[in-house]
Design a protein around this nucleic acid. Structure first.
Lengths: 342, 342
DNA sequence: ATGAAAGCGCTAACAT
DNA sequence: ATGTTAGCGCTTTCAT
């Protein structure tokens, strides 16, 4: 037996297959590693031997086993639908090239990093994509352990490649649109500031307000400790209770935009007439809600796809030159910001 | 070198560690397998040796490596938020017991099964939970390959344990509630009929209608090929275009309920006054939507947790007696079904 | 293309 | 608790 902690029992050994098929263990080894030519006839013998051992997937395993290994995609939360399409994209890229991809949900920080690295070792992951915010110390530690690509959220510090968007620019385009509609008293509902995307969106918001000479009301800038509908509802209720009546909200997530719309309804404010609302991510909720939500669409599928491609490149090509990818976003105008709705 | 396709390079060998630490390979082996006692001093030596080799996670790896292996949780779609909490539950159960859990998204059928089994082999999965509909042939094949537990969706055919709810009963309770509100002309928007849950919910719907002596209009029973908001909108638009005006809809998913509400709004029908709507799953959208959606809540976290527990039991305890778990559901009444809303 | 046999990495049995 | 040594499974080399 080998390294494994031996949880999987009843493992079939080459010796057995060799005996049943009348071949040598060397040939069996060659077949499964795919590192040498074997005759079709010989393969057939092995397939039959496997069948006799109650393993019916022999043929495929033989054909495909020589290809890529396992990649892990880590996300902070299954609950945020933003990641769904990203992972579909990543999975496509992996499958196309004969690699496997599995997904892990974990907030990576000082207290979880040990177990996380253990996980990567245990499954013999060949590479990792993170869509998380990872504190610098942990990021560096991971990068030492395994080929790494950052997706969406990233840190430029350690020359780790990333695939992302320009959050600041995307935010400015949405803000300029809001301002062009005549909105002046614009609030901002943001996610956790430890995320780079949150810092960049905040910066984009500030720049747009300043550039247009609009006064910024700090009480209208909400920093939530996480992307949470309920937390956003509470925070906005507090604001409205103070009597403030902004005429627009830019939100760092569609989920937060949905919360704004809900609270507006409770206070008898019409969206978009009284309050225009813009979200971020173009998640399903943005077109299911009433009114439908104007939002910034990220190329999620492509983000995941490119991240995975980049990772495979790095895993196979050792020390390829570092290159990053920045993809375009798109403002999708829906009911929550239009002046006149049907 | 061993079995591995050798994608991961630069592997550290026990011999190296032994030389640097001045110990024997046997001791290194003992430390990593955890199958024998080793002195703390000795461990320290190894930790230092690992550090010298640029591996900084040595200590933890040593401490924890003796524990469980890898479990895989397979779901049909990342896009359906219903699975988010299930996976959190499963992950908790795994972590508590020192097992690792990764998630895979795959529709399992005749054309994907080979690659899927290859995946399980490649990552050396010790066990599998499926939340998918898996056709009988593929289900049997998987069960031969690896310890298996079914979660939510299941097939009784091959004595594979499952953790689920009573879909038929849950549906009847919702239907009885609708009927008690005086609704008589009740439509049903269902998911793909290949899913057992869809068949059971349809049956529950039929039984309730019959029991109450209500006439069933087959054109008001919609079978969608997948849980899709857009498909539901189209189907409902067709119905409303024919002039039909049911006074309630029971939906096999909150996503479909959201679609009903949207289409009702387009046709000037008030929810719940003109049309009462009930969904299924208590997904986030159900309380974000306006009106909020009455729904059947499943104990998602517990479903995932129990499925994972059951799996670990089966993996470790070989031939434990088969036992299944059926958990309770709860009807959560919200605005979309209440006669008088604020 | 295949087998025989040597080599390698890991584990287990035995001795201390 | 640790080292020695035998043994096992897999890969690779060499010969055919």
């Amino acid at each position: 037996m080998q390294t494994t902690t031996d949880v999987q029992k009843n493992r079939v050994h080459y010796k057995q297959i060799a005996q049943i098929s009348g071949l040598s263990v060397a040939t069996i080894s060659r077949i499964f590693t795919g590192r040498a030519k074997v005759a079709e006839d010989t393969k057939d013998k092995v397939v039959k031997a496997l069948a006799a051992l109650g393993i019916d997937d022999g043929l495929f395993r033989i054909k495909e086993n020589q290809r890529g290994g396992l990649l892990v995609f880590n996300i902070p939360s299954f609950g945020n639908p933003f990641y769904a399409k990203i992972m579909s994209g990543a999975k496509s890229a992996a499958t196309q090239r004969g690699w496997q991809l599995l997904v892990n949900e974990e907030h990576i920080n000082d207290s979880t990093i040990d177990n996380f690295i253990l996980l990567l070792q245990k499954v013999r992951a060949a590479g990792l994509v993170t869509a998380n915010h990872v504190p610098p110390a942990q990021l560096q530690r991971i990068a030492k352990t395994i080929p790494l690509v950052q997706c969406c959220e990233f840190d430029r510090a350690f020359d780790i490649p990333y695939v992302s968007i320009d959050d600041s620019m995307a935010t400015r385009s949405a803000m300029e649109y809001l301002i062009s509609l005549g909105r002046r008293n614009i609030g901002f509902v943001n996610g956790p500031i430890r995320y780079k995307y949150a810092r960049e969106r905040l910066q984009g918001y500030r720049e747009s307000m300043e550039k247009s000479g609009l006064p910024m009301d700090p009480t209208l800038v909400i920093q939530l400790p996480e992307i949470s509908y309920n937390l956003a509802v509470s925070a906005l209720t507090n604001i409205f209770n103070t009597g403030k009546r902004p005429d627009a909200f830019f939100c760092a997530s569609d989920i937060l935009a949905a919360a704004v719309i809900k609270v507006c309804a409770r206070y008898g404010l019409k969206v978009p007439k009284d309050v225009a609302v813009i979200g971020f991510d173009n998640v399903d909720i943005s077109f299911m809600s009433s009114p439908t939500i104007t939002t910034i669409s990220q190329p999620e599928f492509q983000l995941g796809f490119s991240a995975c491609e980049l990772l495979i490149e790095r895993v196979t090509n050792g020390e390829a030159p570092l290159h990053n990818i920045v993809l375009d976003t798109e403002l999708i105008v829906r009911e929550s910001s239009q002046q006149f709705t049907t």
